[in-house]
Design a protein around this nucleic acid. Structure first.
Lengths: 210, 210
DNA sequence: TGTACATCAGTGAACGCGCGTTCACTGATGTAC
DNA sequence: TGTACATCAGTGAACGCGCGTTCACTGATGTAC
């Protein structure tokens, strides 16, 4: 009988939802995914635990939102690094370096993104977008003739799993006698992208000017 | 005043300990590490939960024993595959293939082995022994001139983390469009070991006979 | 050979904990007339 | 402008759960004399 359009009451319509997400994010980054309990989140926000149900159907929904956030941030970081680099090989290196850097700087956030959730989870759009950045970087190297292989997707997959293994182990096994610096990441990128000897050189020109 | 040497009473001295470990192993393989609770183990064995304390100081001790078991089995599997192969490159391939095969056939056992336990855990002997197999296989390729690199430890590290990433993702993300067959593993081994073009050929001779 | 006793593997009940979720509610905010 | 009422964000108590661990115990096995 009336307009029926009810605008959200107090300013709280989306504010509390954001506060819940932020608290969950802080907890996950500081102490890992298993620290994100409804009660802990509620404690952090300063509300009663059941209040969360007005904004998320269950605990899993919060985690899922955090996963998308994490993938989106990963994409943004990688994109930013690529934009600041020069040439196909330079952009591929920048993508891989920034990927590993993100994983090592925010280990809990990274692990959260890649932790298995449900048994047969379909790839989520946020994750696919991030992966596509890598495929694209590899394809640009191929197109520029900087590589000995032509399988962009296959190479990107190999590079991805290798970087993932490195980042995972590197942060969970600090006591392992890791090779210094970026040696391992460099080796992974160069070898698995199939970079040509020619492609490995010109990167020096940029900082040299000779 | 007497001999003081008390032989273990009933036959149970070590029998119950073994039954506890076996139940824990079964639970871990079927449902993952988090399913290995003292109460679940006791249920499986058919004893009261507190009885476990006669054989293990706490839950973590059971898991730690399972981790060593898993690494030892991994070593045995890899060694067996290497012994059945021919030539340095053949043995390296066999080592890597069997490693991944083990991880994919027994995902929960594999994940248990590599799951982070304590914050700064030192590498355990059982894990180091397994890794040394890989280092050795890589070194043999280097010594035989089948490789373009000379850093056995560095190459083995890169191969290991790459295989680990592959195995982890492959089993936790079945919906990803994985390249067929052993393409990814082959690429990882060949590229990260730095196998020469010459070294990639002779493997065909064995099954050919020409 | 017989009896009192030490040993010790395993038990059953209970503890306190934090969890996800449910339920009926409160109390302030805004609207209809 | 005033009053009755609908809306709805957030609450507090409680549920049932499984957990690791503790405690005092039981009851069979073996030993000393």
């Amino acid at each position: 009988v009336s307009t029926k359009r009810a605008p959200n009451r107090r300013g709280q319509g989306t504010r509390l939802r954001d506060e819940i997400l932020e608290a969950a994010r802080v907890l996950a980054e500081a102490k890992g995914e298993q620290a994100v309990t409804l009660r802990a989140v509620a404690r952090e926000v300063g509300i009663a635990a059941p209040s969360i149900y007005a904004h998320f159907p269950d605990r899993e929904a919060i985690l899922s939102a955090l996963v998308d956030e994490a993938f989106d941030e990963l994409s943004a970081v990688v994109l930013g690094a690529m934009d600041a680099a020069t040439g196909p090989v330079g952009r591929l290196r920048a993508a891989c370096d920034s990927y590993v850097d993100f994983a090592l700087r925010r280990p809990n956030r990274y692990q959260l993104a890649f932790a298995p959730r449900t048994a047969n989870e379909m790839p989520r759009a946020s994750a696919t977008r991030a992966f596509e950045l890598l495929v694209h970087a590899v394809r640009d190297c191929i197109d520029a003739g900087d590589t000995t292989s032509a399988d962009a997707f296959g190479n990107a997959t190999a590079i991805w799993v290798a970087l993932h293994g490195y980042a995972t182990m590197r942060s969970s096994r600090p006591a392992f006698p890791w090779p210094e610096g970026t040696a391992t990441v460099d080796r992974i990128v160069e070898a698995l992208a199939g970079l040509t000897a020619h492609a490995l050189e010109p990167t020096r020109d940029e900082s040299d000017g000779a």
